[in-house]
Amino acid sequence: MNLKELGYTDLIEETRKELQLEQFGIGRIVAEHKERYVVRAADGEYEAEITGNMRFTARSREDFPAVGDWVALTVFDADFAIIHQVLPRYSVLKRQAVSHSGEVQMIAANIDYAFLVQAVDRDFNLNRLERYLTISYSSNVSPIIVLTKTDLIDEQPITEITESINHRIKDVPVLAISNETRDGYEALNNVIEKGKTYCLLGSSGVGKSTLLNNLSGQNRMKTDAISKSTNKGRHVTSHRELTILENGGILIDNPGMREVGIADTTSGLETTFDDIMDLAQQCRFKDCTHTTEAGCAVLTAVEKGEIDQSAYENYMKMEREKNHFESTVAERRKKDKQFGKIVKDYKKKDMKNKGR
């Protein structure tokens, strides 16, 4: 396989040379299974593990490979390789790890566009869309909203949903499709460029796996129906996997996400809620919290109906989450630093005692 078909560019090659990694092979992570990886290279596909040194020096989960990463590797036999280094990423999609305060969960790396997928019959939620937008913008990934299952409702509700999106979310393409009838697929295929990498983000049961199967022309991912008892999607996709589509685009599927925690997303929030951020510059006080202050331009705009009340409430909720995440990370780093100092002092004291 030609590496360019996997998204390899001249810039990545220049980076590889700058890091003096020419003696290693090069490949892209196409799947991950509990710290064992599948890497696709020009001469084939390999199961791979990272070196012990990479594992030992990793400071956080972000230092481990993720689906979409380009890695330097050594092939040892027909189907096994060792990963020596992850090449610098130009984008990283991530969210706050579920049930692990202050930790980040990697979604995928080196993504150009994110398809934000919601089903119009049951899943549609503007607040969740703004969350996906925020993590996309903070990761330097361009979002595209995809509304699925249009065959299950009438045209008028679809128009109303599209209008509600355009009212709150500006300058983001909105595509409405049916995985059953393939309506809207022509427009969707037109936005997928050869050699560019796309990622599917959405809850379980919105049709991501069926969408991937249809675009790839293969039955790559198992699909399932919505649970009749809960009306919620089942987690069909159990891992992230990179697939090359029929038209040359590259698509990464993801397990459904019911929680989209905000992590380190100042720039993301500023872009998603740019109208609120612009108004914030007009507030009487520079440290305005936009809650109760007199002279708050944001609150005034909400009262006048210039800013949607739900958008304002969603922004405030995510801002609190961001601040909590950042304070948790800062506290963890402080504790790690203190622990490191204790260990260092203990070792120094131990060496003195041994020298007596």
Rank of each mutant, 00 (worst) to 15 (best):
257 M>A: 12
10 D>G: 10
9 T>E: 02
315 Y>T: 03
125 N>I: 08
163 E>V: 00
222 K>F: 04
73 L>M: 14
129 L>Y: 07
83 I>Y: 08
183 D>Y: 08
25 G>R: 11
74 T>Q: 11
112 D>Y: 05
286 K>L: 09
69 D>Q: 08
6 L>Q: 02
87 L>P: 05
353 N>C: 00
170 K>M: 03
31 A>I: 01
233 G>Q: 03
240 R>E: 03
28 R>I: 09
302 V>W: 04
146 V>A: 07
320 R>N: 12
40 R>V: 12
60 S>V: 02
56 F>L: 13
208 K>P: 03
227 S>K: 13
90 Y>W: 12
105 Q>W: 06
301 A>V: 03
3 L>G: 00
183 D>V: 10
34 K>G: 11
23 Q>C: 06
212 L>K: 01
199 C>I: 14
124 F>Y: 15
37 Y>V: 08
121 D>T: 14
40 R>H: 13
280 A>S: 15
280 A>E: 11
89 R>K: 09
321 E>S: 03
152 L>Q: 15
355 G>W: 09
177 I>C: 11
8 Y>W: 15
199 C>V: 15
317 K>S: 10
218 Q>E: 14
317 K>L: 12
196 K>G: 01
86 V>M: 10
78 A>M: 02
295 G>W: 02
338 Q>M: 13
353 N>E: 14
6 L>W: 09
44 G>Q: 09
5 E>M: 07
44 G>T: 11
108 A>Q: 02
8 Y>I: 12
149 K>M: 09
